[in-house]
Design a protein around this nucleic acid. Structure first.
Lengths: 107, 107
DNA sequence: CAGTATCCACTGAGATACTG
DNA sequence: CAGTATCTCAGTGGATACTG
């Protein structure tokens, strides 16, 4: 597998309109319920929130904890691997800032 | 602008089916002609190669050099900013490897 | 050689309504 | 509360043919 393909796969984990937003909500070890995430990200639809969370769970970035109660309670938090993404995203931010500095002021 | 949005924009520069592949072809200061890129990436169509290169040029990652000759010659290389992405992609690779190590052997 | 120009299929994502 | 189930539409990318 080429480096390009491997990076492509890595990026795949981050693709999806809302994954980064969710990620940032959960960074720092925060634990949030489904409805709390909905409130924290007003623009997202239930369908999208569920879908993205499911994918992130499958990918191993997010842990889903279901409490067998009525009414149902489900909590989400990052796995260690999910948390580990933080410095990499920082690196990405720093790189992106370099663009502006290099004389391409946002067009 | 939130951190999530800024990272999202940064990822935007990398999105597109072929940008990473092109990036890896040009890493290390390589200078390639259009046809050389085509040959290096057999699966890509002309349309896609042109489109991705144009976007990367607009984003400031790639420099396009046209020689006013007949037949036409056009060369592509990375800008300094494009080159600067290399360590960040490494960081991403390292993170992605952490997934496998953490007991999710590729599903 | 280094592109444009079309047409087409597929997917991602939004809106809406319903449920255990 | 925390989801599923549909429907729909726009955007991406692929295949193919043409051109300065």
């Amino acid at each position: 597998m080429s480096a390009a393909q491997r990076v492509e796969q890595a990026l795949g984990y981050l693709e999806g309109r809302w994954k980064l937003v969710i990620l940032f909500q959960l960074f720092g070890g925060k634990v949030l319920r489904f409805s709390e995430l909905e409130r924290a990200i007003p623009a997202i639809s239930q369908k999208m929130l569920t879908q993205q969370l499911r994918q992130m769970e499958q990918d191993g970035m997010v842990r889903r904890i279901v409490y067998p109660e009525v009414p149902p309670r489900v909590e989400y938090c990052l796995t260690d691997w999910g948390q580990a993404l933080c410095p990499t995203l920082d690196s990405l931010l720093t790189w992106a800032e370099g663009r502006d500095l290099a004389a391409k002021p946002s067009e």
